[in-house]
Design a protein around this nucleic acid. Sequence first.
DNA 1: TTAAATTGTGTGTGCGCACACGCAAGAAAA
DNA 2: TTTTCTTGCGTGTGCGCACACACAATTTAA
Lengths: 356, 356
Amino acid sequence: MDKRVTIKDIAKQAGVSVGTVDRVIHDRGRVSVEVKAKVLQVMQALNFEPNLIASTLAFNRVIRIGVLMPQFQSDPYWDLPLLGMRRAQQSVKHYGVSLLEQMFDLFSPQDFKSNALTLIDQKPDALVFPPIFLKESMELLDHCAEMELPTILVNTDVEHPQVMSYIGQDSYQSGVLAGKLLSTVMNGSGRVLLLNLDKETLNAKHLMDKELGLRHFLAQKNQDSLSVLRQDVEDFDDLKRLETLLNELLQQYADIKTVFVTNSRAYKLVEAIQNLSQAHLPLLGYDLLPNNLHFLQIGKIDFLINQNASYQGYLAIKNLTDYFIFKKQLPRVQHLPLDIVVAENAVYYLQREQGN
Amino acid sequence: MDKRVTIKDIAKQAGVSVGTVDRVIHDRGRVSVEVKAKVLQVMQALNFEPNLIASTLAFNRVIRIGVLMPQFQSDPYWDLPLLGMRRAQQSVKHYGVSLLEQMFDLFSPQDFKSNALTLIDQKPDALVFPPIFLKESMELLDHCAEMELPTILVNTDVEHPQVMSYIGQDSYQSGVLAGKLLSTVMNGSGRVLLLNLDKETLNAKHLMDKELGLRHFLAQKNQDSLSVLRQDVEDFDDLKRLETLLNELLQQYADIKTVFVTNSRAYKLVEAIQNLSQAHLPLLGYDLLPNNLHFLQIGKIDFLINQNASYQGYLAIKNLTDYFIFKKQLPRVQHLPLDIVVAENAVYYLQREQGN
DNA sequence: TTAAATTGTGTGTGCGCACACGCAAGAAAA
DNA sequence: TTTTCTTGCGTGTGCGCACACACAATTTAA
């Protein structure tokens, strides 16, 4: 009954040829104003919706998305977004979407920079990357602006006119949420030990934002009796030192009641204090890494906030497909849910991370 | 570089015509065994993947999905899956997917039955419905089996050979999760008041499962000091009665510390006890209805478990598209995440419910 | 032995759209 | 005035595949 309207129908109804209709649709000019108006009016009247299937088939264009990510399998967290992107690519490859993957050393701004250039040289149609190094990322974005390269950021947002869309969590709010969860197990008073297990913590805006969120929540909840102690640890791979450090802190500050690890490395802390004969210290961390999940299941970690790392990557590719194929406008910011993961609901999120 | 392989390439490489290749792909017969083997071998060698875009365009088939749902805008919860389905239909309509919507009275098995027949008579290609009425649903599934109508269930699962896929939550585990969340605010002892605000509670397997999950969790956590009091309320729209009932229960059982409303109607309880001068009673409910969200924000509800109602509908349609268009096999059970929603992370889930 | 059915293969058309090209008529340049 | 551009339109081809049809070479039935 409701047979779909085609450009042929439009053409017949408007008394012109399909070529003319086509020119109107794509605004290619070479159409008199009267005819153009007529065609547009008919399109309105018949409620024309182009057949995107036919359109992409005829368009027959390949879209190459440049992907600049930390070296695969060098850090368990950073594998997730890349895997998400690959999954997304699989599901939209028949639209002609392909990925140009370029990897850099997670701890080397120089390497980031040089790989960025290599990627740009291949002239992709769009770019996706996490702005891990602020200065180098801004330079890259400037470069993209010159080349009019649409860019999507994942994991961390940065203010730059060239950024078409940011996909990731709201770091500040995730700190707030951490405060909420930790305060439920603190019974009104005590100290939160906030651990930044990262290098260049000072440059990492999202870590700062989490701290801010935490502090604001606790302050608003209970001005005096809830406090935060922050400790940055760059050398997080040295478990011995981590253990010693924690021991010292716990002795020095007897009122430490909970620990907040601000990134995906909560499992490192658990590993470090395995044989610490301390009563259980409630622990909140991030992300569904295998190690984190293991410690969640056996009760060594109490909460994980899921940053949906793999879904971030998935969405980035999906969104670019929407943008190029379906001409959809993308929102400047897409905040993903802050999933509260406990032992009792972890399995479903894990499935989603892997399946989508 | 990696130009896609087409049936033309296969044909040339195998020394046959495209028609023959086509016959091999679709197993339409009329091909000698030798030629068939040759073609298959070439397809393997060239790693042929059919262009689904071209395929669906040429196939030019419409897929009509029958949707049997409770009357739109009669219950805030049941609008969600339908809205999800409509959103999904929008995003796959260019594959020729359309919905045949048929609505029934949420509280009338007869109406369910008659509308089911009306829908079946229109000969849809597939069917989606929530088996709210067990007996009538089984009959409907028998009917579907005769007509070889693939069927997807949402919201509640039912054992029947004709069910291709169930999309929804794991009710038992959601009860377990409720137990976990409530026990964190109970300090080791006390009673959970479990409220079934529904008609025909006895028939509703998912409500039973939630209770079971809750009881098992509490028993395993603390044999003696945590208990459950269950109360079924069919007349949940009478706020006065609800208030009286709750008053009585609280007087009778002084150790009631938390309340667990097993479906989306937690807001009714809050409305009923608005002016009850009782200290705050921690409350856990389900689903992101506007009223629930409001009470969550102002602290009258402590936790909501999101059953992803709208996403259930969305997935149902998406999955059927995958099944018909992309020939994907569907898993028998797709459990959606049990999202823990608190005031601090509600906004993201709400966005997703509306966006998707 | 001849007619009819079956098997194996190739050719052609269309799905709806994008885009290149052709061609007329008028406008601008020579 | 003749020559070149420009504007305004129509026609044709192809994207990759699905499917109907044509037709020869068999095989089976009459």
